[in-house]
Design a protein around this nucleic acid. Sequence first.
DNA 1: CTTGACCTTCCCATGATGGGAAGCCCCGCA
DNA 2: TGCGGGGCTTCCCATCATGGGAAGGTCAAG
Lengths: 149, 149
Amino acid sequence: MRAGCDAMTIGQASRQSGVSAKMIRHYEAIGLVSPAARETSGYRLYGPEEVHTLRFIGRARSLGFPIAIIAELLALWRDRSRSNADVRHVAQRHADELRRKMAALAEMAAALDHLVGACSGDGRPECPILDELAGEAPEPVHPAGSPFS
Amino acid sequence: MRAGCDAMTIGQASRQSGVSAKMIRHYEAIGLVSPAARETSGYRLYGPEEVHTLRFIGRARSLGFPIAIIAELLALWRDRSRSNADVRHVAQRHADELRRKMAALAEMAAALDHLVGACSGDGRPECPILDELAGEAPEPVHPAGSPFS
DNA sequence: CTTGACCTTCCCATGATGGGAAGCCCCGCA
DNA sequence: TGCGGGGCTTCCCATCATGGGAAGGTCAAG
């Protein structure tokens, strides 16, 4: 494929990659992608190669990878002598992180469900939810351990 | 209980409430709590009432409530003519939000698990994870006649 | 009086994203 | 050739909750 024949502006690159122009500039500013070539006017120029990279970044973002990890993935992507074990390890660590966050949310949701279940919602002022938040829980939800670390 | 007899500094209030001094000042700055009384020296002074409020905030935070919603909860807490239905509704909405976030994470984790499962991690450069991120997915989710398993 | 712990305010950083302003550029149309 | 509209540039600000750290004032114990 001949490069340089189908250069495009940031708006077109944005549309083709699914990454907002704002984000493309941001990724350049923080060094995630190398500075784009410039038109004499100062406009950034993107070729299919760059768009491909941006799409890679977009997909990684949609999987929740943080920018720092995406930088690692990009380096591995470009390194033809990489080991897929390294890539797998990075992905595995991120999956673990996602599960950690899920567990934290699940814990909150469970506690919240319990409170909501304890509140009749019949329009009176008495409210176990507020009582619990105020620390005046008439009965401990979990017999041991306060919600604070 | 008589108020004003056991005033304390921000550090003590922090220890008793479990909310960091930094955050206590922040909550005051953004108007979540009313400005603390001041010692002649300029030190903030907190009584049991304020500490109680801070603990309320801390518990709500530990359930993942955002500050804006905590402000609502505080108002309801103080409103003796509140309806527990209102409180329940606020809590319910937050629980829904938590579940929404959990679902998003679960989706990412599932996709990631699939990729990790497809990568042998045997040390060679070939890596389905990078292939997928690059958009060169060799096989759809259900392998339809692909040469590699 | 010194020392050390504690307090004050102010600024900055996180992480990823977006909004918006001021100003330049480019293309098409009359 | 001139103009208008849309796209591009940079720069600043906001989110959301939290913390780090500096410069300087205060207090209590030794």
